[in-house]
Amino acid sequence: MSEPERCGPAGTLPEGARPQGDLPEGALRPPSLLALPSYLASHVARIGHESLVEAVGRSGLRLPHFATLTALADFGPLPQHVMADRLGFQRSHLGGYLDTVEERGLVRRTRDPADRRRQVVELTDEGAAEQRRLSAVAEASQDAFMACLDADERTTLTRLLRRVLDADDRTDG
């Protein structure tokens, strides 16, 4: 897969290409769509997601595996159902993700002493080390993806996106 141009001119055609219809010279996407934040966010998210998936994938893991390790690094041991809810995963899918990282010795599942029907998941020492390594890989992929923004712009973008996400989380209860 060729590396897409990062932070190039938004919505422009490659040099020599001709626009269709009444679009402004050099327009790749309809200007009316480029005025919609959700349209822009979805396309930028796709680019960043592909970069992150590729970076994490080099370790032989998938993004959901990295997410489970990171949730445990951030929150500590969690009941399996709580982890699924916090990550927005279907509970049945989380079991498969955990099987993979457990087979690699990165997590351990034990019965919750307070409720034997539940499993508590925790990082092993190897899992904590792998999570730190993957976090550095993820940060590097995001640095490359956002290379056209300076540190203040990245901070502002992240803060604004968090506000939207936090508002949605409050709405979902």
Rank of each mutant, 00 (worst) to 15 (best):
A45S: 15
Y39G: 00
L69R: 09
A41Y: 01
S59L: 04
F66T: 01
S51Q: 14
S42M: 09
I47T: 11
L40A: 10
P64M: 11
I47K: 13
R62A: 15
G48D: 13
A55M: 02
A71V: 08
H49D: 06
S38M: 09
A41M: 04
R62F: 12
G60F: 07
I47A: 15
V56Y: 01
H65L: 00
S42F: 09
S59K: 04
R62V: 10
A73E: 15
L72A: 01
H49W: 14
R46W: 04
L69D: 10
L40C: 12
L61W: 01
F66A: 11
V56D: 00
G48T: 02
R62I: 07
S42A: 14
H43Q: 13
A41Q: 06
A55F: 02
G57E: 06
T68L: 08
R46A: 14
V53S: 12
V53Y: 04
E54F: 04
V44E: 12
L61P: 06
L40W: 07
R58S: 02
F66E: 01
G57K: 13
V56G: 04
E54P: 01
T70M: 12
L52T: 06
L69P: 11
P64W: 12
S51M: 13
A71F: 09
V53T: 12
S59I: 10
E50N: 13
R58Q: 12
G48V: 02
L69G: 13
L61F: 07
V53I: 04
P37Y: 03
P64H: 12
V44A: 15
L72K: 14
T68M: 09
S38Y: 00
A55Y: 02
P64N: 12
G57M: 09
L63Y: 11
G60M: 05
S42T: 04
H43R: 14
T68I: 02
R46E: 04
T70C: 01
T68D: 05
A41G: 05
V56R: 00
T70R: 15
L69H: 07
L52A: 15
L72T: 03
L52F: 03
H65G: 02
A41E: 08
L63F: 05
L52P: 00
R46N: 06
L40H: 08
T68E: 07
A55D: 00
H43F: 04
R58K: 13
E50L: 12
S59M: 06
A67R: 15
A41P: 03
E54M: 09
G60A: 05
V53L: 06
G57S: 11
H49R: 15
E50T: 11
A41K: 01
L72E: 06
R62Y: 07
T68A: 07
T70H: 15
H43L: 04
E50H: 11
R46V: 10
H65S: 00
L61R: 02
P64I: 10
L63S: 06
H65R: 02
R58M: 08
V44D: 04
A41W: 04
S59N: 09
I47W: 10
T68G: 03
A71I: 09
S51V: 07
V56I: 15
A67H: 09
S59G: 05
R58L: 08
H43C: 02
L52W: 01
V56L: 08
G48Y: 03
L69Y: 12
A41H: 03
L61Y: 00
R46I: 05
R58F: 00
R46S: 07
